[in-house]
Design a protein around this nucleic acid. Structure first.
Lengths: 189, 189
DNA sequence: GTCTATAAAGCGATAGAC
DNA sequence: GTCTATCGCTTTATAGAC
């Protein structure tokens, strides 16, 4: 429970929330110090390369979560339950639109250049896993590709707008419509 | 041509690109100095309140552009050409996905709190103008509201993913699909 | 209107005591 | 493993010459 590994994982999760709130540039070490309760010395003990290493580990942590809860369920060809898993995970993770997608946030400005591989890999895998699951569910390749892109982009857009409008309902109902579109496509073929 | 007003407008446009590239926190005064060719003294002459005032004027500049090219055409009830105007303006403005939406970028992190009214107003007006145009084109209120949200959120998502994947084609084809969905809805009713 | 010089604060990062 | 103190640099912002 309190193994060194778990302690560091919890620390990474805490730092992730600070990056979410302030962005990469806005998340200063003093804010991270304040938000984690750890002094700079402790932070550099865990992350010798400093802020860059913190962000890299945060992205790794996010990728592992999505792998387990979204990518792998979708990639298991035989499991039609993958879609249900994805919608549940998306709702769990983004807290009905109160939480942004940090990978998307990093993609927007020059922070992307530092973490281009992780950012590209996250979205590429999500879209490909979803597309593959849709093909296995019977859609042809073009339909599956288009719908997978629509869904992943639609989630990102809904997250931005929920925050811009300060309206979590926006996220909830847009996610609901995306889900209905996907399920309609599955029924139709 | 070189009136003081036009000179400042050109300056604001230049500063906007620097905010786009580095985000609000990442756009330091030295980067703005470098990108505009103006010293700090000159910048504070134009924007006495500093970076906050620069960003506020940038948001105003963006809002004026969208008002003229997108919101007003959509709000003119009799003009079905409003949709064409919007798609053309979106393509012009975002340079086929090479340019991000600064309003959306500001919405993501704590920068939003500084400019909440401008950010909320921009998206609210876009969605409402589009919804109103769709209703005037014959859609019922619920369909128009849903489609307007899908389109605006879809554009934001496509911009994020085009940058994340470093793939402008992603934006172009997703925008194309959004347009087809809208036109299909118009034909169907 | 633009510049240089400079102030005061905050930044990421390091050193070293404990 | 955590802390305090501190370094060197950059930040936003101001002052004042031209």
């Amino acid at each position: 429970m309190d193994s060194p590994d778990n302690a560091k994982t919890a620390l990474v999760a805490r730092i992730a929330e600070i990056f979410r709130e302030f962005g990469y540039e806005g998340a200063s070490l003093s804010r991270i110090t304040e938000g984690t309760g750890l002094g700079k010395g402790s932070l550099y003990h865990f992350f010798p390369a400093g802020k860059t290493e913190m962000a890299a580990e945060v992205l790794l942590h996010i990728d592992r979560w999505f792998s387990r809860r979204i990518f792998q369920p979708l990639e298991q060809a035989d499991a039609l339950t993958g879609f249900d898993d994805m919608w549940r995970a998306v709702d769990d993770y983004f807290l009905a639109g109160r939480r942004i997608c940090l990978v998307g946030a990093f993609a927007v400005d020059s922070t992307r250049d530092r973490f281009a591989a992780a950012i590209n890999g996250y979205f590429t895998r999500w879209i490909q896993a979803l597309q593959q699951a849709l093909r296995h569910a019977g859609l042809n390749s073009a339909e599956a590709a288009a719908l997978a892109e629509d869904v992943v982009a639609g989630i990102q857009g809904a997250l931005i707008l929920a925050r811009a409008l300060d309206d979590t309902d926006f996220f909830t109902r847009n996610l609901q419509r995306l889900r209905q579109r996907l399920e309609l496509a599955l029924v139709r073929q």
